Amino acid sequence: MAKVKYYYDSDTLSYKKIQTRKRDRFRRAMLFIIASALFGFLSVTVLLQYIASPKEKVMQRELENLKLNYELLSKRMEQSQKVLDEIQERDNNIYRVYFEANPIPEEQRKAGFGGVNRYKSLEGFDYSNMITEATKKMDVLSKQLYVQSKSLDEITGYAKDKEALLAAIPAIQPVSNEDLTRMASGYGWRLDPFTKARKFHKGMDFTAPRGIPIYATGNGIVTRADNASSGFGNHIRIDHGFDYLTLYAHLSKYNVRKGQRVKRGDLIGFIGSTGRSQAPHLHYEVWYKGQAVNPINFYYGELTPEEFQEMLLRSSQEGQSYD
């Protein structure tokens, strides 16, 4: 039951009942309903800013997935760029040198794209910078691959006229991958295992069990197969012609003799630890025009880009050599 309300009438000095008209009651009711509706609308609007709908949740998951795929794509492009950089280095300093061809300038390999803004259509989005950056990297990588492909086509043309040179160049590992324990030491400054002094290591050390086969890395003539050179123990030297010479040291025994003509892949000796050696391994050197050069640049005959990258990483670590 509604309470009866009174007001004091100062003229009659008495209390009188307050009479509420239906119109007033209706107006108050409408104001209450409108205020309630407005409050509800504002509350829902605020909550929707913090509570995502199912569709928004799906879109958020897709966005997170796209970000993850972008990061993976970026890493793969970086890895591909490293491998391509190594191939370009070998192309300029090894392959093109073989055939007396001019190196490709760095500016030509990595030139950008001038003129009209190629990426204008990618602007105006929430992640435009990320998308544009990835597209630029892919464009540059694609152009470098195109230039390198054309270069290799050119090298192939030279090769057809220089089969004898290609057969002579020491282009494979002297020890098979299946027989390797590991590539123990690379070309460069290393610690001498006996004196512990820093010394320039002119070749690469391949560790493997005693008796593992050693192969000629290119066609040539055996000029030495003896132990008369200080430190090398039983060793073999092959003159490949075209100013190339290879040396194989610390052998347990020979399978060739001086003056013998050999071909790439022929068995010439076996792993040992003769001479100045710390453990069974092969010390292998490549000489060109009277200067020792890094043998790692000559394994293009059998290594995949991934295997070459792994060997490059191991050979660049400065540690202790085995001889």
Rank of each mutant, 00 (worst) to 15 (best):
Y288A: 01
Q19M: 08
Y288L: 12
P193Y: 04
K55V: 09
K253N: 13
S80T: 12
R210T: 15
L251S: 01
T45D: 09
Y215L: 14
A225V: 02
L63W: 11
E154L: 10
K196T: 08
V97A: 11
S277H: 05
H201Y: 07
N65W: 05
F41P: 02
Y215S: 00
V44Q: 07
F26I: 13
K196S: 13
K143Q: 14
Y215E: 00
R28I: 11
Y322Q: 10
T135F: 08
D243C: 00
K16A: 11
Q317M: 11
E306I: 11
T195Q: 06
E133V: 05
P105V: 09
A292S: 15
A216Y: 04
V116A: 13
S230Y: 10
K258V: 13
D192M: 06
N297F: 10
N234H: 09
R257M: 06
P280C: 09
N297S: 11
F270Q: 05
R237S: 04
D205E: 12
L165S: 04
G231M: 00
R237T: 14
R25K: 14
M204K: 01
E78A: 15
A134D: 07
L13G: 15
Y300Q: 04
S36K: 06
H281M: 06
F99A: 00
N234G: 00
K263W: 00
V262C: 06
V83L: 10
M204N: 03
L247K: 03
Y8E: 08
L73V: 07
L165R: 04
D11V: 14
S185D: 05
A228V: 00
Q144D: 12
V4I: 13
T223N: 02
E64H: 08
G241M: 03
Y300H: 12
H250E: 03
G220M: 01
A225H: 01
V147Y: 10
D24R: 10
V222Q: 00
L191F: 12
R23G: 08
G218K: 01
E100F: 05
G115K: 12
G272I: 03
G231K: 03
F113Y: 14
R76K: 13
F298Y: 15
A171G: 13
P105Y: 09
V256N: 02
T20V: 11
R90S: 06
G220H: 03
A167P: 03
G186D: 02
H283M: 03
T246G: 04
L247D: 02
R90K: 12
D243Y: 03
K263S: 15
D243K: 08
G272V: 03
L282S: 03
L31E: 14
G272T: 04
A225Y: 02
G124T: 07
E78M: 11
S53I: 06
I221G: 02
L245T: 09
R96K: 14
I214L: 07
K67S: 12
N93T: 12
K202T: 14
R314T: 12
K16T: 09
R264W: 05
D239H: 08
Q148K: 05
A184W: 01
Q144N: 15
K82G: 00
K202P: 15
E123K: 15
D153W: 07
R198I: 10
E106H: 14
Q148M: 10
